[in-house]
Design a protein around this nucleic acid. Sequence first.
DNA 1: TTATATTTAAAACATCTGTTTAATAAAAAG
DNA 2: CTTTTTATTAAACAGATGTTTTAAATATAA
Lengths: 208, 208
Amino acid sequence: MQKLDTKTKILNAAEQLFAERGFADTSLRLITSQAEVNLASVNYHFGSKKELIQAVLARYLEVFVPSLEQTISSLNSQGDRYTQHQVFSCLIEPLLALNTFRHRGTTMFLQLLGRGYIESQGHLRWFITTHYGDIMVAFNDAVRQANPHLSKAEIFWRLHFTLGTVVFTMASSNALTDIAKSDFNQDVDIEDLIRRLIPFISAGVSAP
Amino acid sequence: MQKLDTKTKILNAAEQLFAERGFADTSLRLITSQAEVNLASVNYHFGSKKELIQAVLARYLEVFVPSLEQTISSLNSQGDRYTQHQVFSCLIEPLLALNTFRHRGTTMFLQLLGRGYIESQGHLRWFITTHYGDIMVAFNDAVRQANPHLSKAEIFWRLHFTLGTVVFTMASSNALTDIAKSDFNQDVDIEDLIRRLIPFISAGVSAP
DNA sequence: TTATATTTAAAACATCTGTTTAATAAAAAG
DNA sequence: CTTTTTATTAAACAGATGTTTTAAATATAA
């Protein structure tokens, strides 16, 4: 067990609380008490709560985005004909890799992403699109390549439907897997959940 | 223009602000100033902010749930063989009927529902399932009836995927329609959104 | 009418919010 | 070592929050 510095302790506590309770319902005092650091250290190291939120998400995006860029570009290098299922499959590896990067990292990342899209009047959405707009365009292009019959607008909507499906599922994944266990005696981990999601959203995006 | 009583003025202002900004980001002072009533009247008429939130949603559920119960039971009375599309149609009519009940009622209700499922640590979720659990079971039975080839577990997962798609989309519908307007010069109202959602979730549920 | 209950109103309440200050401690550089 | 920068701490700040109180106003009932 290595000794963590203050900045990291804050980030670790903040990401967990943000994912669980949302940004507005998580106070800096709750974060600092869980991180066992002084209250003022948040403003010292990050400037403001808003910048802390961005830093929490940035730590995941810095791992996830390059990983996704790689799987997308390797898909493109294999030719220009691929299915929607293959495009979404590009997401699986980078997403699951977050679980080795951090405990429950995949769930955490998707929950944070969802909260960022719903809460905070769009300032987090702005942060993501301005810092990681390239991969969003590349992914969007791949989806268009796989679905030449769909317009840009239609793809925009269906990708956001997809985001909703994934984010909501992850946000309530604990409750859902508990129900599946008690009602169907089904043991479902995060990897099963993603593999169950892919056919659903692939069919949805490629719908006529 | 009839003169509204304080209770109704509060509910009208609250539902609009809750749908737009979420529960945590909407203060009682913002609600009462928009409703042009005294601050203390919220606690006088509703007891607390939490109970106000429940009252806002209950006003919609009291209209929506009986309407849905009717379409579902009329579907069942027509025989025991119906398609999944028919089951979804049972949902559409009661939803759009909320638009005659109140201006932008459909959008408002679905946004509130979405926020209720994501925010507020599940106390609103509890309120809904304990007060309106019967119709949720009836709807689930109808879906099972329409999909005899799918296992209970499969239906369980895909219905929750569907719920996530709708709820997330509605919770962020303001931001999404803004983007669609600026990026594609597309004016999208709630009815358009629902019509775009149906093919997506239908294909998802019917996925191989 | 008078008497009673209900509703509104302004103010204060205690608590929580993010942020800043000023003093101290620790670390790094000279 | 001394000096200088960096980091931590406790305290206070100004403002917002939900809620309660107390009194006045309004409506209802006798």
